[in-house]
Computed example of a mutant assay.
Amino acid sequence: MKAISISAFGAADVLELADAPTPEVRPTDLLVRVYAAGVNRADLTHRTGGYGHPNFGDSPIIGLEIAGEVIGKGDEVKDFEIGDRVMGVVGGGAYAELARIDYRMAMPIPAQLDYVHAAAIPEVFVTAHEAMMHLARLKSGDSVLIHAAAGGVGSAAVQLAYATGATVYATTDGSKLARVEHLGADTAIDYKTQDFAQVIADKTHGRGVDVVIDFVGEPYFARNIASLAHGGRLVQVGILGGGGKVSVELEHILYRHLQIIGTVMKSRTQPEKHDMIKRFRAHWLDRFEGAGSLEPVVDSTFPLSRAADAHRRMESSENVGKIILTMQPADLV
């Protein structure tokens, strides 16, 4: 099969199309002919050596998110058959014609979705649900501030918050404000020209928001704390602005009853990941069909052979929603 190979860590140019062996199917695996794969920030970290080793836990091939057709399965697989259309999160190996996936990490593709849009769902919507609904316990009538709202997880979080009945504040680049509002944000904030903490204070008359979902990290931390209401929850999902150190007055945590929660899917145990998929599937999977359905947001598609260009697109931060690799035969040349 064809797959993307990384001979050395580095810039996008290290991504090369090469031959690779078909993955071995274990008892709980599905073997999937991949038609589309999502590109994620974790892939950039993998490519540049941020995880310190060439394989991502389960495969020497890069990539965490697939959509395709089941062509084989292990003896312990339940509820899936050959020919089923599936999407899901893999422990590596997505940038390839064939990939294996633990059946408990797979979900059926809603009937109205093609493979490209299906590949835009698993990683970002599961992460958004886990952070905002499960950990932060967002409910109807609450308010939430979502940073990086035009990105993959951010755009998913905006939709889930809107569907839940929350008041949604969202930060993004000024050129993307209208798009973020279309996804469900009540107030879109240009992070380059506006102080989001001041906007939150003004809009909420000093109360603050119940939940903050942040992907940026240290540069936003103090203002995130200031933007929380009494009993508010900050969920740290990423550190795009750099890790570094943060400081906080413990009195604010104590007397305002604040909670600071961190979450990263890739460091969860396999049973925890199974539970994350199960929770998302139970709450939202059927909401991708019919009127008023959730919308997998696709920014652009690239053939697998142009994986380097897909990474450059993500590094530019110009995308709104997901960047998808496609694996049609004509793309594998």
Rank of each mutant, 00 (worst) to 15 (best):
T164S: 09
W284T: 03
A120I: 02
G83E: 09
R179C: 11
T171Y: 00
V144C: 12
A106C: 07
S140K: 15
S7K: 14
K78E: 14
A201N: 10
L304R: 04
E16A: 11
R313F: 12
A18R: 15
I146T: 02
V237R: 05
G174V: 06
K73T: 04
D102N: 11
R100L: 07
G242S: 07
Q194S: 08
G290T: 03
T187Q: 03
K176G: 09
A156D: 01
F80K: 02
V14T: 15
I253V: 14
G321Y: 01
T263I: 10
G290W: 05
I6N: 07
R281M: 04
R33M: 02
L64E: 08
V180Y: 06
L254V: 13
N224I: 07
Q236K: 08
H134K: 10
K273F: 04
R179Q: 14
A18T: 12
L304Y: 02
L228K: 07
F302T: 03
Y220T: 14
G10P: 00
L160M: 14
A149K: 06
L135G: 05
R26G: 13
D173S: 15
G165M: 04
R306C: 10
V86L: 05
A178Q: 15
T193C: 03
I261T: 11
D286F: 07
L285W: 09
A307L: 07
D210Q: 10
S155D: 10
I277H: 03
S317K: 14
L177P: 07
Q328Y: 06
V237H: 10
V212N: 05
G154K: 01
